[in-house]
């Protein structure tokens, strides 16, 4: 063995030891962390759920019909929504009973407020009856902000549907808003 080979062998062993030590000097393990976010479908009427009153105007001249200029826009529709993927939600309105001879309607205004995300779009004027109708649609992951001034302002109006079925009395109905999957 010449001098060059002796020199190489002498350094090979410590080098191998060093390399093996480096290889053994690090090891890893892992865990998959999953975060599950629930579906959220919450809606509410603000500033409160107290009743509103709409009335008809008595004609001042015999032969004229009852009229209605009664409107109410004191209520706001708030909601929070989280959906899966590209799904969308809507909010429907319906009443627990129909009022004979009267047309009760609601219009949700365009969204305004301190919320964020993909808020819904108003579907314009909707008659309120025992049949559910969508007032706001296209709701995705969003929140409107809480309280009056946030969300969609609700404009209620009352009109004459059929004079022949009107009665001189008061009606009280419950209006129900429901967030549904579209």
């Amino acid at each position: 063995m010449n001098r060059y080979n002796k020199f190489s062998c002498a350094w090979m062993l410590p080098l191998l030891i060093f390399v093996s030590q480096v290889i053994h000097a690090q090891q890893s393990c892992n865990t998959t962390v999953s975060i599950n976010f629930p579906q959220i479908s919450l809606c509410d009427i603000e500033p409160n759920r107290n009743s509103i009153n709409l009335s008809l105007t008595t004609p001042v001249e015999a032969g004229l019909p009852l009229t209605s200029s009664s409107v109410n826009n004191s209520k706001w529709l708030n909601y929070t929504c989280a959906v899966a993927g590209s799904s969308t939600n809507a909010i429907t309105v319906q009443s627990n009973s129909n009022i004979s001879g009267l047309n009760l309607q609601v219009t949700a205004s365009a969204y305004t407020g301190i919320g964020a995300g993909t808020n819904g779009i108003s579907n314009g004027v909707q008659p309120i009856s025992t049949t559910a109708r969508s007032v706001v649609s296209g709701i995705r992951n969003c929140y409107t902000g809480n309280g009056a001034g946030n969300g969609h302002q609700l404009n209620y109006s009352l009109g004459i549907g059929n004079h022949s079925t009107l009665h001189s009395t008061s009606y009280s109905i419950t209006i129900i808003y429901t967030m549904i999957s579209q």
């Binding site: 892992n30 865990t31 998959t32 962390v33 999953s34 975060i35 599950n36 976010f37 629930p38 579906q39 959220i40 929070t80 929504c81 989280a82 959906v83 899966a84 993927g85 964020a116 995300g117 995705r140 992951n141 969003c142 929140y143």
Partner: peptide, 12 residues
């Protein structure tokens, strides 16, 4: 809620 619903996962 802007994250939507469902699972997000990462390997630690």
């Amino acid at each position: 809620v802007l994250n939507g619903s469902g699972n997000l996962s990462t390997n630690v």
